[in-house]
């Protein structure tokens, strides 16, 4: 019989304990993911018993829809790209600016952090509904303010040109607190001694920021870029709650890939096609994440 050393036995026990969450994850998260891959190759109606194997037909339909200028699927992919391309940089720039300021203040600093973090812990649906009211074309808060300054009223959510930025603004605002807190944690990690040394050398505040803060904040930045990109790619609830009947309108101007997945799967019962969309989104997220990690995570000396 093999005799285990104490250290080996410890490791063995660790694996035994880890097995439980791993089994849980395998069943709750990994198995459904694999199942989605399988569904994407079938004509899968959730109400039906038999699901016909259709090969890559669902993916061919996806390509055809993407090439159709008016299709909601094309709009969903393009809008999702717009949410990411606009949302991630704007949110992170704002968050960094706020974090730098919060890092300076001492008086009431906890209160200010709380104010920025509060939206993040509020229910997305509640936030979306409140903003839907604030955006009302006539008597909504924003238009009342505009009118008070004799500025023209804005349609916000009710016009294709303004609807996406209007929703994006809410999402950026709501997620800002999270990015601020992570940035603050990153800033606290930077030893004060570097700044003191720079000051002695006569560096300006900008130079300190450019050559000390930014490089040393890089791991935090990478973490946030990856996480927020994934979050924007998976955008769903705010659009569902802020558009009429949750249709991602007007004229598909705000719809997202995940919203399409939901509508195809549960309103049209095209679970196979919805899975094909999911698998495609999964591939996109995976690809973008790998590229981001490769290009942004270099070690700073």
């Amino acid at each position: 019989m093999m005799r285990l050393t104490l250290a080996r036995r410890k490791i063995l026990w660790a694996y035994i304990f880890l097995a439980i969450p791993i089994l849980f994850f395998a069943y709750i998260r990994i198995y459904p993911t694999i199942f989605a891959f399988q569904m994407s190759l079938h004509d899968y109606n959730p109400l039906a018993i038999e699901h016909k194997y259709v090969g890559l037909e669902n993916f061919q339909k996806l390509v055809a829809e993407f090439n159709n200028l008016r299709s909601p699927t094309r709009a969903a992919f393009l809008n999702t790209a717009a949410y990411v391309v606009l949302g991630v940089p704007i949110q992170l720039l704002l968050a960094l600016a706020v974090a730098l300021m919060l890092n300076e203040i001492r008086f009431l600093s906890t209160f200010y952090r709380l104010v920025f973090f509060l939206p993040f812990v509020t229910s997305t649906i509640a936030v979306a509904w409140v903003f839907r009211m604030l955006y009302q074309p006539q008597f909504g808060f924003f238009n009342v303010i505009l009118q008070a300054f004799s500025l023209p009223q804005q349609p916000f959510l009710s016009r294709p040109q303004q609807a996406l930025p209007s929703i994006l603004a809410v999402v950026i605002w709501q997620g800002l607190g999270y990015a601020v807190i992570i940035f603050l944690a990153g800033l606290k990690q930077i030893p004060q001694i570097f700044y003191d040394a720079a000051q002695v050398d006569g560096a300006t505040r900008w130079q300190s920021f450019r050559h000390i803060t930014l490089p040393l904040l890089n791991p935090t930045l990478v973490f946030l870029i990856v996480l927020q990109t994934i979050a924007f790619l998976r955008m769903f609830a705010p659009v569902l709650a802020m558009t009429a009947q949750g249709d991602g309108g007007p004229l598909n101007s705000t719809t997202t890939v995940v919203l399409r997945v939901y509508r195809e799967a549960f309103q049209s019962f095209n679970m196979g096609y919805a899975s094909a969309l999911t698998v495609t989104l999964f591939a996109i997220i995976l690809g973008i994440t790998i590229i981001q990690l490769r290009f942004t995570s270099r070690n700073i000396q």
């Binding site: 016009r159 294709p160 249709d247 309108g249 007007p250 004229l251 598909n252 509508r263 309103q267 049209s268």
Partner: peptide, 17 residues
């Protein structure tokens, strides 16, 4: 859902587009 959406969109195409 889809049959309703096509008419919503037609109406919006004229009204907004």
């Amino acid at each position: 859902t889809v049959q309703r959406q096509v008419l919503i969109d037609a109406y919006d195409q004229v009204r907004l587009g």
